[in-house]
């Protein structure tokens, strides 16, 4: 983990106060093996810069794309990512879990 949570939330505050459009993504639920615990944050700005992680790299790209939408519309989104196929867990894929991520605009 490169960034501690406090850095991420401080960045969210600083970026917003600096005039950028900002969204905050939070892992709110996990099932199976999830790489990042509930409460993990990713902060995204309106140019696609981001800090933190919600999955250790697996779904950050998709979250950033959705976050840009959220920044524009102002409407929060609940995203779900996962591998539905149970066989994927059985062979021990590390990213075989499901996570739900809440993305909200900071305003």
């Amino acid at each position: 983990m490169l960034s501690r949570d406090e850095d991420i939330l401080k960045a969210a505050e600083d970026w917003r106060k600096g005039g950028r459009g900002v969204a905050l993504a939070t892992v709110v639920e996990t099932w199976g093996s999830a790489p990042r615990p509930v409460g993990s944050n990713l902060v995204i700005d309106d140019r696609g810069n981001f800090l933190g992680s919600v999955s250790g790299g697996c779904v950050e790209g998709a979250v950033v794309t959705e976050a840009l939408d959220v920044i524009e519309s102002g409407k929060p989104k609940m995203l779900e990512f996962g591998v539905a196929d149970e066989a994927a867990w059985n062979v021990g894929l590390s990213c075989g879990g499901t996570i739900r991520v809440f993305v909200e605009k900071v305003d």
Partner: peptide
């Protein structure tokens, strides 16, 4: 998140 909440 409201910026006020985040700041607090």
């Amino acid at each position: 998140m409201n910026l006020g909440i985040l700041t607090a």
